[in-house]
C-alpha cells in the first residue's frame, strides 16, 4: 500500500476514538488561542481596540487564520472532528424544512443561492445543500475577506 492516493485515504479514514478526538480538538484550540493572544499578532492585524467602524463591517482574517483553517480541515477529513455543523433556531429550522418540502420554493431558493455564491451543486438541492449555500452566501456578503480564505481552502 504505497500508493499516494491510498495513503491519503488511510489518513482520511483511519478512525479514532473520542479520547483522541478530544485531544486533537484541544490542540486546535491551542493554535487558535496562540493566533490571537500574542502582542505580535495584535499589532500585525490591528487589535480590536484600534479597529475602525468600517473595519468592523468588513473584518480581516489574522495572518495565521489560513493555517488554522487548513489544520482544522485536515482534522475534519481524518474524522477527528465532525463534517457537519449545526445551528439552533426553531424558525430557521422550520424554514429550511418547509423550503425543502416545497418543490417550487426549493428550486427558487436553491437557484438564487447558487447564482449568488457561484458554486456547483452536485446532488440537487438537499436540505444540507440549502443550508450550506445559505451559510456561504452569508459569509460572502458580510465578511468577504474571510470568504476569500474559505474559497481558497476548497
Amino acid at each position: 500500500m504505497t500508493d499516494d492516493e491510498l495513503e491519503e485515504l488511510r489518513q482520511q479514514t483511519r478512525g479514532t476514538d473520542r479520547i483522541d478526538a478530544t485531544g486533537d480538538e484541544d490542540a486546535g484550540v491551542d493554535v487558535e488561542a496562540d493566533s490571537g493572544s500574542g502582542d505580535d499578532a495584535a499589532s500585525d492585524t490591528g487589535s480590536s481596540s484600534s479597529r475602525t467602524a468600517s473595519d468592523a463591517k468588513s473584518p480581516t482574517p489574522a495572518d495565521d487564520f489560513d493555517e488554522c483553517l487548513a489544520s482544522t480541515v485536515g482534522s475534519v477529513e481524518r474524522g477527528v472532528q465532525p463534517k457537519s455543523f449545526s445551528a439552533s433556531d426553531p424558525v430557521l429550522s422550520a424554514f429550511f424544512q418547509t423550503v425543502y418540502r416545497d418543490d417550487e420554493a426549493r428550486e427558487d431558493v436553491g437557484e438564487a443561492l447558487v447564482d449568488h455564491v457561484d458554486v456547483d451543486v452536485e446532488d440537487g438541492y438537499t436540505k444540507s445543500e440549502l443550508v450550506r449555500l445559505s451559510v456561504l452566501a452569508g459569509v460572502q456578503e458580510a465578511a468577504p475577506e474571510y470568504y476569500e480564505e474559505l474559497v481558497e481552502t476548497f
Binding site: 479514532t16 476514538d17 473520542r18 474524522g79 465532525p82 463534517k83 457537519s84
Partner: peptide
C-alpha cells in the same frame, strides 16, 4: 477504536 467516533460521523449522513 474507530467505531467510537463512527457513530457521530454517521450522523452526518442526511
Amino acid at each position: 477504536p474507530g467505531l467510537d467516533g463512527l457513530d457521530t460521523e454517521l450522523n452526518d449522513i442526511e
